[in-house]
């Protein structure tokens, strides 16, 4: 037996999901962060964030069309993390790194938190 592994399939799927998001196709939830609104797909959110996984696996909450996050969450940090979910690229700005990390803690994105920690530590070392 043999199989053909399409090595870029995961990134091709993610690219298409991001195109769907940018065109607001089949997006099924609005995330409200400090009066800013972000349209997204619940499946992508819950695949990337422990918080969203908990929300959308809760039968009482899974059909909600809008989720309002804690007002302490930074909307710029959230925007960067949402882009990361759909692109695998985390835009790091020195001025926003703490906001990104705190938002990642809130969203229960532990691996991103660890990466931010390492980035801050390496910046301090320099």
């Amino acid at each position: 037996d043999s199989c053909i592994q399409f090595t870029r399939h995961a990134s091709d799927v993610l690219l298409n999901l991001n195109r769907l998001r940018s065109r607001d196709i089949l997006t099924d939830v609005t995330i409200v962060v400090n009066r800013q609104q972000f349209r997204a797909h619940k499946t992508v959110l819950m695949a990337c964030s422990g918080l969203f996984y908990s929300i959308f696996t809760d039968p009482l909450k899974c059909s909600l069309g809008a989720i309002t996050l804690d007002p302490k969450v930074d909307s710029d940090g959230f925007a960067i993390l949402l882009d990361f979910m759909y692109t695998s690229r985390l835009t790091i700005r020195e001025s926003l790194i703490l906001a990104i990390m705190n938002t990642a803690v809130y969203l229960q994105m532990d691996h991103v938190v660890d990466t931010c920690h390492r980035f801050i530590k390496s910046s301090d070392d320099r």
Binding site: D1, S2, C3, Q5, H9, D12, V13, R19, R23
Partner: peptide, 21 residues
């Protein structure tokens, strides 16, 4: 998979959804 010969295909795997219609 163990015991399965894997051929790697490096090209695109699916169609690309355009940015806009």
């Amino acid at each position: 998979y163990d015991g399965v010969a894997t051929i790697k295909e490096m090209g695109r795997s699916i169609h690309e959804i355009p940015k806009q219609d």
